[in-house]
């Protein structure tokens, strides 16, 4: 599996602990999700809704114009949806600031390595897969490498 270092580190953190502590870790991550910058906070409709999540989650993706096309991620989810916030925070911690090619190279099923399926339930975990898919689609569109769009 080729994961960017920060995401790899998160996966290792989750792998190292039991079910109860996995939830604790996810809760801590949910509390670390950065607040939206003003340009999104005031314009929620410019963000994309991830319908696959159980609670409302909006995301925005920005790609720098530099050589490596660094990716920046922004998420919005209400405080009464800590699980969704936790998933978003995993994405943010693991992928924000990484080059586009690295983000696109993350395996679609990377979340299985977190071992959260049992603690959180398969249905709830689906939102995380959807988040990654939508992030990748937006990155592809913005990079415009000729291979954009759905495979």
């Amino acid at each position: 599996m080729t994961l960017p270092a920060p995401l790899e580190e998160l996966v290792e953190d989750f792998e190292a602990v039991g079910t109860k502590d996995k939830l604790q870790l996810l809760l801590e991550l949910s509390q670390e999700l950065p607040a939206l910058p003003a340009r999104y906070a005031d314009a929620a409709d410019s963000m994309e809704q991830v319908h696959e999540c159980q609670s409302p989650l909006f995301l925005a993706v920005e790609v720098d114009d530099d050589a490596e096309r660094h990716v920046h991620l922004f998420f919005s989810a209400p405080p009464e949806a800590p699980t969704t916030r936790g998933f978003a925070s995993i994405m943010h911690t693991g992928l924000d600031g990484e080059p586009a090619a690295t983000v696109l190279g993350v395996p679609d099923d990377f979340y299985t390595a977190l071992g959260l399926t049992q603690a959180v339930s398969p249905l709830r975990i689906r939102g995380m897969a959807a988040m990654l898919a939508r992030i990748k689609r937006q990155v592809r569109e913005q990079v415009g490498d000729g291979q954009g769009g759905e495979p």
Partner: peptide
Amino acid sequence: DEDVLLYDTGHIPGAVKIDWHT
């Protein structure tokens, strides 16, 4: 709750949690 972590962000004093899914 629907959200498996919501209880852990703060709950009624003394309340225990039962998760429907797990």
